[in-house]
Amino acid sequence: MRAAYASALHPDQPLRGLTVGDLPASPAPDGWVTVEVRASSLNHHDLWSLRGVGLPPDRLPMILGCDAAGVDPDGNEVVVYPVVEDRADPRGFSLFSERHPGTIAERLAAPRENLIPKPAGVSFADAACLPTAWLTAYHMLVTRGRIAEAESVLVQGAGGGVATAAVALGVALGKRVYATSREQGKRERIAELGATAVEPGARLPERVGVVIESVGAPTFDHSMKCAAPGARIVVCGATAGHRAEIDLRRVFAMQLEILGSSMGTPDELAALLRMIEEGTVRPVIDTTFGFGEVERAFERLASGDVFGKVVIDHLA
């Protein structure tokens, strides 16, 4: 079957290890079913995999991709929840493309309980945006950040999948959303989503109840200073540096909560799908490529110029 996979690992030039070609389909374990993939989307996780982060050489070749929407063996349209229970992993789980073949292929083997019904009114492309980046943003805002208790939100480093999803979801949930970006073009796109776009480190007109932090060391002090008393700073990554300096005096004086967050639950993915079906929010798609353009899709993701998700249409 056609697939995009890591055939080699190159920490400094990850795209050198990307191959698009035929691979034999892995047999589905007991309790798993085969999904015919209609759309998938890329995440920076795929680039990290090509660098060898979380993917050792002995697992190559490994089909890439965490996100997929498609059709199950009974003809039902489904979205695939990307988290697989895995006792061999220290986290207790793994994502598709870490220990099990990923989603950028004609077919995907997945546990039956990982299949979430796709509403008829939600396209395969939109559905394929949700399982990793949008689910992570939803979990950060709603569950970890308790956004219902806040009036305003700061999203650091909008442009990528998680941060852009957090902006769109925050606005859809009726909150005042501020978002930072170094690039004027991305700040204009942020404003189009209904948020207030500011330069990194800029003073906000108010302190916020929730901060969405995926940048790390360069922005963390700003996140702390923008947090209102009792605010939640929710961290899902550290793309620009993981060793942030924290003024503990501000933590206890302002009674701040610093919370780690990773992925979300199947029920949260179903709730996201309902929001899309009801028209409350729409996934932000940067570019859609056909399966024959997978290399171009990865180049687009690696360029750093993306705003939203890069989607693969498997039927194009």
Results as ranks from 00 to 15, higher is better:
residue 106 E to I: 02
residue 45 H to L: 15
residue 14 P to M: 07
residue 72 D to Y: 13
residue 99 R to K: 15
residue 188 E to F: 08
residue 249 R to N: 15
residue 191 A to N: 06
residue 49 S to N: 10
residue 307 F to G: 02
residue 310 V to G: 02
residue 94 S to M: 03
residue 298 F to D: 01
residue 197 A to G: 11
residue 302 A to F: 12
residue 154 L to G: 02
residue 183 E to N: 12
residue 63 I to C: 07
residue 78 V to S: 01
residue 136 T to N: 04
residue 138 Y to V: 06
residue 177 V to F: 05
residue 218 P to D: 01
residue 194 G to K: 06
residue 122 V to R: 02
residue 312 I to Y: 05
residue 208 V to W: 12
residue 196 T to K: 06
residue 152 S to K: 06
residue 10 H to F: 15
residue 70 G to T: 07
residue 170 G to C: 03
residue 260 G to S: 07
residue 267 D to A: 14
residue 154 L to R: 01
residue 15 L to A: 07
residue 185 G to T: 07
residue 167 V to F: 02
residue 287 T to A: 08
residue 37 V to T: 13
residue 154 L to C: 11
residue 43 N to F: 14
residue 12 D to Y: 04
residue 20 V to E: 03
residue 85 E to V: 11
residue 14 P to T: 08
residue 148 A to H: 14
residue 1 M to W: 09
residue 98 E to H: 10
residue 181 S to F: 08
residue 304 G to P: 04
residue 201 G to T: 00
residue 127 A to F: 13
residue 179 A to Y: 04
residue 215 V to G: 00
residue 194 G to L: 06
residue 149 E to M: 09
residue 293 E to W: 05
residue 155 V to G: 03
residue 9 L to K: 02
residue 226 C to I: 00
residue 115 L to Q: 07
residue 125 A to S: 11
residue 74 D to T: 15
residue 308 G to I: 02
residue 273 L to F: 15
residue 64 L to P: 10
residue 81 Y to G: 04
residue 179 A to K: 07
residue 179 A to F: 09
residue 69 A to H: 08
residue 315 L to C: 06
residue 53 V to N: 06
residue 72 D to N: 12
residue 107 R to V: 14
residue 200 P to E: 00
residue 200 P to V: 00
residue 19 T to H: 14
residue 217 A to I: 01
residue 273 L to P: 14
residue 58 D to P: 05
residue 131 P to Q: 02
residue 53 V to M: 13
residue 72 D to K: 06
residue 181 S to G: 12
residue 68 A to V: 03
residue 10 H to V: 10
residue 302 A to Y: 14
residue 88 A to H: 13
residue 1 M to T: 15
residue 279 G to I: 11
residue 12 D to L: 14
residue 155 V to H: 03
residue 251 V to C: 07
residue 31 G to S: 04
residue 33 V to I: 14
residue 176 R to E: 08
residue 33 V to L: 14
residue 155 V to M: 03
residue 227 A to I: 02
residue 172 A to W: 13
residue 15 L to Q: 14
residue 64 L to A: 02
residue 249 R to C: 04
residue 188 E to I: 04
residue 290 G to S: 15
residue 241 G to T: 01
residue 308 G to Q: 00
residue 183 E to Y: 10
residue 180 T to P: 08
residue 129 C to A: 11
residue 11 P to Q: 02
residue 210 V to H: 10
residue 226 C to M: 12
residue 263 M to W: 09
residue 178 Y to R: 06
residue 7 S to V: 15
residue 112 R to M: 00
residue 80 V to F: 13
residue 289 F to K: 04
residue 193 L to W: 09
residue 164 T to A: 13
residue 123 S to W: 12
residue 176 R to S: 05
residue 242 H to D: 14
